[in-house]
Design a protein around this nucleic acid. Structure first.
Length: 749
RNA sequence: UGGGGUAUCGCCAAGCGGUAAGGCCUCGGUUUUUGGUACCGAUAUUCGGGGGUUCGAAUCCCUCUACCCCAUCCA
């Protein structure tokens, strides 16, 4: 585990420490109505990861409460994804549909408590009754039905006596709730549909808000982790569990931001559109961010897990740069896979001074990768090189073959261009070259220095392969529509060439094609007779990048600060205005503090109370406007009285305590309600202002931090805070910060 | 617009009153028979804006702004 815990792990740890739960139980609760994507991988990594880190367990539960969209094939895909990522769920796979009986009992319970009712409004009316975000809704007249009638109706709904939509079961909460989700949410709806697991037993199905929390409870889940869009549903989650009076321990819901990645889409709807509209070739199209797609592309589980860990968990909506994902797969494959040579766009090279043939012994891994293994690479007079690796009129900095620049054939000899043969259109079709017999790789005595080594294949023995080059699915960073699709996201090269060992020896399924990228033998289409390789990701290419940069030279980030227009501040009432005037003129408060006090009745009243006991108007005002305001905001009820604050201010005025200590005392006082003077005495918080007592401490700290002293003397003024902080820490916060400040500044001069 | 959230580098993200972590990207340099890898180095005087409190504020207080979610019988 990394040293910085994310906020979820922090919560889990606190709960464990507080003894709230004996064991952490999480769950991954997908609805089996679509293929899992990398966003699910994040959720899987979080839920299973937390369970693993805290020695708990994680369930896999299909949240299958909507029979019209769900299917077994998705269940399989989901199970498969979890397994592929290397996680093991606790026991059997769980299904919300297995809890239908229990859920139904609880629904009746709610009716008996008069907390749920059968409503018979039609859909449209129900929507009208719900009100809007600014206007309260109104309760359905059916809410007055008797318990008996509700029970009876629900029973008959279950038995299939009514048509879809005729009735629903709703919770009786509050039609005027500011949280729209709490305006009598639906608990059950009628659906005469075949459920892929429950069959035709049920004519009613629970809604998410009813089924999910209770399923968590049934499974003993402790931390129910979901994405941000469920924040509003948390109130119902708690309402259902609380209202039913379920015995603790009970689960609590926590939300995190879902994963977004640029140049792709993640929503089920958009993914479905791509698949069904044949914009891609099925759910496992390697361009898709689905687990199946990533997997078929050649991504490893480790790389995806590393990715999930690297992006962190937080609550801010964010879009991760796809470069981060690409880094993770390169990073993983770099140390794992063999290097081989392939040529995608061949240019023939005839080495006129070479006769016969030979085989080079070439290691599969470069020297910096601690892995063994090698293969034979056949070589003869005629070879192919990559068309890009020859240039007749090279730009500056071009390292490869030119009419005047020799290159090394990787694992082989150094060649030099002798003649360039072109067709009628002027296209280069062949290079006539010469090799240096003394330059053989590994036993080079030629003394020739070349700028680079290029990959190649032998014409006579090279194998033909199909290569599928994948690029980002969309051309826009934040794609909206199908128009944003990248027309070049797939390029198929039917007859690329590859060295024979890849096909005959099959040392692996993933390879680095040197200087090109990582490739994966397509698990479905690749055969011995017709090998197919998917490009997983390209190598980093600092040359290609440089070339590109030459073109667009326009955008420079505009450094001008954007001006922000402030909205209107609400005007004060006459009463408030009067108070404000008194504060600023009579009591000499600054206008900001006066404004805060004048506008808040609780604060101004409290202020007046303290002022009656102590006349340090400004000090009290500052304290009330800042510290007391916070307490009021957090707790709503104050643990202390005006007299306590007056006493605190007096100690401050007398110099018994510093501002820093005052804050500490205040916090304690707000928590325990103890008298400030008692807190000061019991904790020994009297401030130290005597320089003679402070100086030795400062000397000690200066002696211990010679580097920071240097930096400070070099002009890093921020370090003053560091030294003052250290001294304060050493004295338990008791040193008078003002004295310390002066002393430190003096000593470091 | 009522409610619920969120704002720290180009992209993620730590930080919880005392020197603005880290990763990706980018840019230099070293090593290199992959323009790869590895390694070194650079890159936020500033934390959405403005005020206030404090010796000291990304962190506390006030206020404004922007973005996301909620008015499916979806989850």
């Amino acid at each position: 585990m990394s040293e910085h815990k994310d906020f979820l792990r922090t919560i889990v740890e606190e709960d464990l420490k507080a003894g709230k739960y004996q064991k952490v139980i999480t769950r991954f609760p997908p609805e089996p109505n679509g293929f899992p994507h990398i966003g699910h991988a994040k959720s899987i990594a979080i839920n299973f990861g937390i369970a693993r880190d805290y020695k708990g367990h994680c369930n896999l539960r299909m949240d299958d409460t909507n029979p019209t969209t769900e299917d077994t094939k998705y269940v399989e895909a989901l199970k498969d994804a979890v397994e592929w990522l290397g996680f093991e769920w606790d026991g059997e796979v769980r299904y919300t549909s297995d809890y239908f009986d229990k859920l139904y009992e609880w629904a009746k319970e709610l009716i008996k408590m008069n907390k749920a009712y059968v409503d018979s409004l039609d859909e449209e009316t129900m929507r009208e009754y719900r009100g809007t975000v600014t206007e309260p809704g109104k309760r359905s007249e059916y809410a007055q039905r008797s318990v008996q009638e509700n029970l009876d109706l629900l029973e008959r709904m279950k038995n299939g006596e009514f048509k879809d939509g005729e009735h629903v079961l709703r919770a009786k909460i509050d039609m005027a709730a500011a949280n729209m989700k709490m305006r009598d949410p639906l608990l059950y709806r009628i659906r005469h549909a075949h459920h892929y697991r429950a069959g035709d037993k049920w004519a009613i199905y629970p809604m998410y808000d009813f089924g999910h929390c209770l399923s968590d409870y049934i499974e003993g889940v402790t931390h129910s982790i979901c994405t941000l869009e469920f924040e509003n549903n948390r109130d119902i989650y708690n309402w259902v569990i609380d209202t039913l009076g379920l015995e603790p321990p009970r689960p609590y819901q926590h939300e995190f931001a879902r994963l977004g990645i640029n140049y792709t889409v993640m929503s089920k709807r958009k993914l479905l559109e791509l698949v069904e509209g044949n914009y891609v070739n099925g759910w496992d199209d390697p361009r898709l961010p689905t687990i199946a797609g990533l997997r078929r592309r050649g991504y490893t589980p480790e790389s995806i897990l590393n990715f999930c860990e690297s992006i962190g968990i937080a609550k801010a909506n964010s879009t991760v740069d796809v470069a981060q994902l690409e880094f993770c797969i390169r990073d993983d494959l770099n140390t794992k896979v063999p290097r081989v040579m392939s040529v995608l766009d061949p240019l023939k090279v005839t080495i006129e001074n070479y006769e016969g043939s030979e085989e080079f012994d070439a290691p599969y891994y470069p020297e910096d990768i601690p892995k063994e293994g090698s293969r034979k690479v056949p070589f003869s007079k005629e070879i192919y090189i990559e068309r890009e690796d020859f240039c007749e009129n090279p730009p500056e900095g071009y390292y490869r073959l030119t009419p005047t620049q020799s290159v090394r054939l990787r694992h082989g000899y150094i060649i030099t261009c002798k003649e360039v043969i072109k067709d009628a259109q002027g296209k280069v079709i062949e290079i006539i070259a010469e090799y240096n017999p003394d330059s053989k790789s590994g036993s080079d005595t030629s003394g020739i220095k070349v700028k680079s080594a290029i990959q190649w294949v032998d014409v006579a023995t090279a194998k033909e392969v199909e290569i599928r080059l994948y690029d980002r699915l969309y051309k826009n960073e934040a794609p909206q529509t199908l128009e944003d699709l990248n027309p070049d996201s797939l390029k198929v090269i039917k007859n690329a060439l590859i060295e024979p060992a890849v096909i005959t020896d099959k040392p692996d399924v993933r390879f680095q094609f040197e200087r090109q990228g990582y490739f994966y033998a397509d698990p479905i289409d690749s055969t011995d007779a017709h090998p197919v390789f998917n490009k997983i990701v390209g190598l980093k290419d600092s040359w290609g990048k440089k070339e590109k940069v030459k073109a667009p030279r326009a955008e420079r980030k505009s450094s001008e600060k954007k001006v922000q227009i402030d909205g209107e501040v609400e005007p004060m009432s006459d009463e408030q205005q009067k108070l404000f005037d008194k504060y600023t003129s009579e009591l000499q408060l600054n206008s900001m503090v006066a404004d805060i006090l004048a506008r808040d009745e609780k604060l101004s009243t409290f202020y007046a109370e303290v002022l009656a006991l102590n006349n340090s108007a400004v000090t009290i005002a500052n304290l009330v406007a800042n510290e007391v305001a916070r307490e009021l905001k957090e707790a709503n009820k104050l643990q202390f009285k005006a007299s306590d604050v007056a006493q605190l201010v007096q100690m401050l005025d007398e110099g018994t305590i510093s501002n820093k200590i005052a804050k500490e005392v205040f916090e304690e006082m707000a928590k325990s309600g103890e008298k400030p003077s008692d807190i000061v005495t019991s904790k020994g918080l009297v401030q130290i202002s005597d320089p003679a007592a402070i100086e030795p401490i400062i000397d000690d700290i200066i002696a211990k931090n010679p580097e920071n002293v240097e930096k400070f003397k070099a002009g890093n003024n921020k370090l003053l805070g560091f030294f003052v902080g250290q001294v304060l820490k050493a004295t338990g916060g008791k040193a008078n910060p003002q004295v310390v400040n002066e002393l430190v500044a003096q000593k470091l001069k």
